[in-house]
Nucleic acid binder design. Structure first.
Lengths: 344, 344
DNA sequence: CTGAAAGCGCTTACAG
DNA sequence: CTGAAAGCGCTTACAG
């Protein structure tokens, strides 16, 4: 691969002139411009990104710090980021933290902070123009200092203690919408399998649920609320617990699809058919939702959009636009399938 | 963030000395070394990756070109690559080609070559030390020229016309193993839903199937072989076609899980229960496999391992080790669940 | 053991 | 319209 210098000498012009042409400066005669362009074509010359970055002290590269690539949400989030970045001619350096494999089910520990900050420092050393943090799960990030030398945007989580822009999903409205849907199908006694206590997603969905119930004049029975971890096995257990506490409900709203699947497991075990004997709703619209029997009615999460919006905001910030305290919540979409039966 | 020069002047030594310390050279007095290290700690100095890369003309960065991030295989492949890379202190620049969204079901066209080569050239411009191409589907890549200035490794596909190392799965053995398993369960008449014709994965799996049948002294009935696209809908259609052509089989080996799910759909429609009235096997071990009713017996693909091996080989090549004509096939693993019933 | 100097491949004032 | 020169932040012989 030839260099600018060689290219210039082949064309019998100075490197400054070639550089000007490359950068679209207009103060160049048409003749020399054509000659240079022609030679570039012949030689396959490509400017060195590295040299350009060093000189211009901008890399046009964004650092992507990813909690966990194998989280179901990550690929779509990343795809959204990359698509926007590419359209603006930015590159991405990617680093995955392997959060779940390293820290299991209690991921966001003190030790984890160090992992994240080490990654941030590495990105800084690479001289990325900005950073996008892609969380695996909504949480209060806390650890990004307010005085980072480059802008940062949080996707799928947020930070309460300063002004870092964040994009997440509107859990409350989603909880509200699903509950209204359930009510519209005639359900009045709705049980909840809620995911871990003190979980942000769960908390907000529950608030939405209660609001919808209240609006419909329906009472919320605390006996019909069961919490647990976000897995299929725990969905099974939670469903079991529900039936041990009460039989008085016609629908179960699970706060994720995995727990809904576990819920199915238990229902079949006791001879009840979801979508027929009892309504089940999920959340996330993972791939599996459509492959359950019956296909699961659930909430789709705007992952691609969140990724795109995160990239958009970051690039805006790079252009000097302020996004202080920007904590945007994108709407989820109800996907109606076969697991919610109607009650007359 | 301070520079080497500032750091040196704070310590009253030359930049060369600081650089030597940073790079672990031993010809430095303990006293100055301690002073410099101390100052680095105080100032939070970090060397500029960009400047270092320009000077050393190595970036310690690998370009990852990804067919389609949302392919089910990509995240694990990437995770494997990144994990190995990180352990060796390499970074990754990532670019996704959005193959399926751009080119639909006939992805590997002439136009696609240009997309890939554009990406390669961009990586070259960024001066990556090497490239890993992560395919979404096994195919003969063809387009990488043999004289690329940096080494390249193909993961999940291969290239027939030159010496680029490639890692893919051992479809033939996997087809053989699954067939043997089916035979061991008493099945003698096995139908195949094969995926697209002339597909590499499908071709090799079929060869393995035929070998196992032959070894067991079983005949292969061409009527029991149906091809189609890799989707659920086509699995449904293929299963229907199978039943229209013949009723004389006790097991269906689907060449991916999605088609197996479609197969389930049709079976239920005609009142047959998979795993009871008829055996069904899949391929891929996607997330959905365990959520079907009954859970699907299938073949797990060593994606993480392929990614890791690709990264390993690339770094070996960077160290001058030759891997000409390296076309490695990693073994799949049979995951036994509930969809294959036994015949006495 | 330490430092002065060249140079990696560019961009950016600035002079002509 | 064109070019000489400085400099981005490092590393690497080389001299002392």
């Amino acid at each position: 691969m030839i260099t600018l210098k060689e290219l210039a000498s082949r064309c019998n012009v100075s490197i400054a002139t070639v550089s000007n042409i490359l950068n679209g400066k207009t103060n160049v005669s048409e003749a020399t411009k054509q000659k240079v362009l022609q030679t570039i074509k012949e030689t396959g010359y490509r400017p060195s990104y590295i040299a350009r970055s060093l000189r211009a002290s901008k890399t046009k590269t964004i650092g992507l710090i990813i909690d966990e690539l194998s989280a179901f949400s990550s690929p779509a989030l990343i795809e959204g980021v990359l698509t926007y970045l590419e359209s603006k001619n930015y590159k991405a350096i990617i680093e995955t933290l392997r959060l779940y494999s390293k820290f299991g089910n209690q991921p966001y520990t003190e030790e984890y902070k160090n992992v994240v900050m080490t990654s941030v420092n590495e990105m800084l050393s690479i001289k990325v123009d900005g950073i996008i943090y892609i969380a695996a799960h909504a949480h209060d990030v806390e650890y990004f200092p307010p005085d980072l030398p480059v802008p940062i945007v949080i996707s799928y989580a947020y930070q309460s203690n300063n002004k870092i822009p964040a994009l997440r999903i509107d859990d409350e409205t989603a909880g509200y919408d699903m509950t209204k849907y359930l009510i519209s199908k005639g359900h009045k006694k709705i049980a909840i399998i809620a995911g871990e206590e003190q979980d942000l997603h769960g908390h907000d969905r529950l608030v939405g649920f209660e609001r919808a119930m209240k609006e419909a004049g329906l009472s919320v029975d605390k006996n019909l609320l069961v919490a647990g971890r976000w897995s299929r096995g725990n969905g099974y257990l939670a469903c079991k617990e529900l039936f041990e506490k009460s039989q008085d409900f016609t629908a179960i709203f699970c706060f994720n699809d995995l727990m809904a699947a576990g819920c199915y497991d238990y229902l079949y075990e006791i001879g009840k058919v979801p979508g027929k004997d009892i309504a089940v709703a999920g959340f996330d619209n993972r791939d599996i939702a459509d492959f359950l029997t019956p296909p699961l009615t659930t909430m789709a999460i705007p992952l691609y959009e969140i990724g795109g919006a995160a990239a958009y905001i970051l690039l805006q910030k790079l252009n000097g636009v302020e996004f202080e305290n920007h904590d945007e919540r994108l709407p989820c979409r109800l996907i109606e399938r076969k697991s919610v039966c109607e009650i007359k």
